[in-house]
C-alpha cells in the first residue's frame, strides 16, 4: 500500500450551477500537514466537506486511505476526525460528558486516561466539569480539538480551527498540533486565514483561487516562487490578482 492518505483527482463541485470547486487535484501523504489557503469563497470548506462525505462531488475522484469515499464512508470516518471553529458541542452538557459521548460514538476503548491527557495537553483540565456553554470561545475551540483527537484519528481535518483563539493560545495550539503530528504521525489538512498559523504548522500548502489550485509546495518554496517575503504577501497577491497568477 502506498502512503498516500488522501488522493483527490480533478475534484469538481457545483451547487446548483455555482462552481464551488472547479478542478482540484492533490495528494496528501501519511504524516504530512497540508494547508489549504485562499480567499473567502475559494473552495476550502467545500473541499473539506467533500473529504468528510458531507457533500457529494459533481465529478472527479476522491480516495481516502486508498478507499472510495462513497462506498466506504463509515469505515473511513472511523479513522478521521474533524474540528472547526464553526461547530460546537452541546452547550448544556459538561465537557467530560460531551467527550464521553464522542468517545462512545467512535468506540474509543478506555477513553478516560486519553481524555485527561488531552485536556492536560491543551491546558484545560480544570474545565472538565464545566458546562460546555459556559466556556469562552477559545476554551471551547480547545475542547473541540480534544474531541477531534480523542478517537486517535489517522487523518485530522481542521477547518479554521484557530479562528477564535488569542495569539498566545493560538501559538500554543500550533505547537501542540505540531507535536502531536510528530509523536503520532497524524496526517492533517488544515484551512486557515492566519498565515502565521500556516507557515508554522504546515509542511506544504495549496493555494486555492476560484476553486482551482494555483500554487502548491512548501511554504518557503511558494514564498520564493512569488517573489514575496511572507505567505501573507503571497495570499494578498493571489487574492487580488489570482486570475493573473493563474494565467502565468
Amino acid at each position: 500500500m502506498s502512503d498516500a492518505i488522501v488522493q483527490v483527482e480533478h475534484l469538481r463541485k457545483e451547487f446548483n450551477g455555482t462552481v464551488a470547486v472547479a478542478d482540484v487535484s492533490f495528494t496528501v501523504r501519511r504524516g504530512e500537514i497540508v494547508g489549504l489557503l485562499g480567499a473567502n469563497g475559494a473552495g476550502k470548506t467545500t473541499t473539506i466537506q467533500v473529504l468528510l462525505g458531507l457533500t457529494t462531488l459533481t465529478s472527479g475522484a476522491v480516495r481516502v486511505f486508498g478507499q472510495d469515499l462513497e462506498r466506504h464512508r463509515v469505515e473511513i470516518l472511523q479513522r478521521c476526525n474533524f474540528s472547526s471553529a464553526y461547530t460546537a458541542l452541546p452547550s448544556n452538557l459538561r465537557v467530560r460528558e460531551n467527550l464521553r459521548v464522542f468517545a462512545a460514538l467512535y468506540q474509543v476503548r478506555d477513553y478516560r486516561p486519553k481524555m485527561d491527557a488531552l485536556l492536560q495537553l491543551f491546558e484545560i483540565a480544570h474545565l472538565k466539569d464545566k458546562i460546555t456553554g459556559h466556556l469562552s470561545s477559545g476554551e471551547s475551540t480547545r475542547v473541540n480539538l480534544c474531541k477531534a483527537l480523542l478517537s486517535d484519528p489517522e487523518l485530522l481535518l481542521l477547518d479554521e480551527p484557530t479562528a477564535s483563539l488569542d495569539p498566545d493560545i493560538a501559538d500554543k495550539v500550533r505547537k501542540i498540533l505540531r507535536r502531536i503530528q510528530r509523536e503520532r504521525g497524524i496526517t492533517m489538512i488544515y484551512t486557515s486565514h492566519n498565515m502565521r498559523d500556516v507557515e508554522e504548522v504546515c509542511d506544504r500548502v495549496l493555494f486555492l483561487h476560484k476553486g482551482k489550485v494555483i500554487a502548491a509546495g512548501a511554504p518557503q518554496e511558494v514564498i520564493a516562487r512569488f517573489n514575496q517575503r511572507s505567505l501573507e504577501e503571497v495570499f494578498i497577491r493571489v487574492a487580488r490578482s489570482g486570475d493573473l497568477v493563474e494565467a502565468q
Binding site: L54, E75, F82, Y86, L105, K147
Partner: peptide, 11 residues
Amino acid sequence: ARNLLNIFVAP
C-alpha cells in the same frame, strides 16, 4: 447546538 456536523462526520 451547532453539533450536527460533529454527528454527521462521526462514523
